[in-house]
Design a protein around this nucleic acid. Structure first.
Lengths: 109, 109
DNA sequence: ATTAAGTTTAACCATATGGTTTAATTTAGG
DNA sequence: CCTAAATTAAACCATATGGTTAAACTTAAT
């Protein structure tokens, strides 16, 4: 039960651990686009970029709608909610640190 | 400029993309502990677990305070704030989806 | 019917990752 | 001082990852 969820989380975090893929997701914020458009900005072979898209797809962050020879990619942010939920546990911890920092500054360094 | 931050984000997300390491971080929520205590729960060689700790350390999620032969590990959640901030951009997207789902349920599936 | 566009697949390469075992290192305790 | 504990380092292995190029495939356009 937990395992399946875990593996999914693995895939999501791993997909996010690459700047090319994060940039692709940011591109998709503005709406769906083809693999070609997604690959365009990168100094990388088309096939290379295509692999990144597949990683995103396997993590569920991108869905593909094939229309003729064009593959339209859509952002699906829902898997990020899992990652976000996992991180939320720790928000209190980093807030504590930031509060302390703020306090230190207020106290005149 | 952006690159340094990016690389850091890479390391943080990559560190989180492993269930052993996530479990270690959860263990550390309850307070600092030694590498041995961290390694204990896992069906894995000590050296293997030690490597995971090092990955967490390189990502800045764990700090180490060496006291004699014992290495005390502390949780440092602050790098997670970066990851969280990155994810926040997308919160609106997954909220939209969840809202739609909720609405669909309310409408009687 | 050909050709060209958009994409994936396959084969390959270098390096990274997750794991092992064995050896080395440092320090605590009898 | 010697041994045992806590930990890292080193050498190794299998598989994954990020990249390449070349070939294959599907579909649109001429």
């Amino acid at each position: 039960m937990v395992k399946l969820n875990d593996q999914h989380l693995d895939a999501v975090f791993a997909a996010l651990a690459d700047p090319t893929r994060r940039a692709m997701l940011q591109h998709l914020e503005h709406g769906p686009c083809s693999v070609g458009e997604l690959a365009g900005p990168f100094d990388m072979s088309f096939a290379g970029a295509s692999k990144h898209v597949k990683v995103l797809e396997k993590a569920g962050l991108v869905t593909r709608e094939v229309q003729g020879r064009i593959h339209h990619c859509h952002l699906n942010a829902t898997p990020m909610a899992e990652a976000d939920a996992w991180l939320q546990r720790y928000r209190v911890f980093w807030n504590d640190k930031l509060d302390a920092l703020e306090q230190a500054i207020k106290d005149g360094d």
